[in-house]
Computed example of a mutant assay.
Amino acid sequence: MSNPRIEFCGEWYDVHPDEPFYIGRDADLVIDENPFLHRRFLAVSKENDLWWLANVGTLLSATVTDDSGQVQAWLAPNARLPIVFPTLNVLFSAGSTTYDFTIHSTSDYFATSQLTSASSGETTVGPITLTTSQRLLVVALAEDILKQNSPGRGEIPASADAAARLGWTQTAFNRKLDNVCEKLDRHGVQGLRGGRGKLATNRRARLVEYAVSTRLVDADDLILLDRNADDAAESTAGLAEPPA
């Protein structure tokens, strides 16, 4: 079994079995100088003939998926998981920025089937479906990340900016955000629910991580934002026309 390689922002990093490879603000792979990011957040190491990805931080969590997006795990602090797929995608957020990188290896212990899409304006990942407006909301939040051509970083807009992008009121945006987070939480998606029945304060970041990593939305959905803007412009123009 050859050693894994990590791809981030168009650059490749080699991992060796004799010592852990750290990822963070001050590590073997320097992700960013973001003060919200741990100095050492994640580590790739070899133990008992298996390669492992471990969360060595204390606050942040990461979303990890296989290349198909069908297998997804939430890697909390002090947790670790074996690298058993040829391609492993890792997403995490620090502050308002979401980062992603890819671990490439020759591991092929498991295989997964591909995603399927519904034909009625809804996206399906397992049992989870999004309505058109819910998908618009998620795409607006994930727009910067979906525009990337390779693993790297992207900014998650504030709720007010995302609402303006969609032409929605802040109240409507927050209500729809509540609805989609509650839907995913009911389907077992971790990190969207805070304590005592409340939604998590960092739910926008976690929502984007999950949606992008599991292919709930992808770059093909970006056209929905343009269509929504065109529809809004036509509606505004129609209202502005004087009566015949």
Rank of each mutant, 00 (worst) to 15 (best):
6 I>E: 10
9 C>T: 09
13 Y>E: 04
20 P>H: 11
30 V>Y: 01
32 D>T: 06
33 E>F: 00
34 N>Y: 03
34 N>G: 08
34 N>K: 00
40 R>C: 11
41 F>S: 00
48 N>L: 09
50 L>P: 00
50 L>D: 08
50 L>K: 01
51 W>S: 03
51 W>V: 03
54 A>P: 03
55 N>Q: 01
55 N>I: 03
62 A>C: 08
67 D>T: 07
68 S>L: 04
68 S>D: 01
75 L>M: 06
78 N>T: 15
79 A>W: 03
93 S>E: 09
93 S>H: 05
95 G>K: 02
98 T>G: 06
98 T>P: 04
99 Y>W: 07
99 Y>P: 03
99 Y>H: 04
101 F>L: 15
106 T>L: 12
106 T>S: 15
106 T>I: 13
108 D>V: 01
108 D>Q: 09
112 T>D: 08
114 Q>P: 00
118 A>C: 10
119 S>F: 04
123 T>D: 07
123 T>I: 01
126 G>C: 13
128 I>Q: 06
131 T>L: 01
132 T>Q: 07
134 Q>I: 06
147 K>T: 14
154 G>C: 11
154 G>D: 05
156 I>S: 02
162 A>I: 04
163 A>E: 12
168 W>F: 11
169 T>M: 05
170 Q>R: 13
174 N>F: 07
175 R>Q: 14
178 D>G: 09
182 E>G: 10
182 E>L: 10
184 L>P: 00
186 R>D: 13
187 H>E: 13
193 R>D: 09
197 G>I: 09
198 K>A: 13
201 T>M: 08
201 T>D: 13
203 R>G: 04
205 A>V: 02
210 Y>C: 09
218 D>T: 13
221 D>R: 00
222 L>N: 06
224 L>H: 01
236 T>M: 15
238 G>A: 11
238 G>F: 12
239 L>V: 11
239 L>T: 07
241 E>H: 13
242 P>K: 06
242 P>I: 11
244 A>E: 12
244 A>M: 06
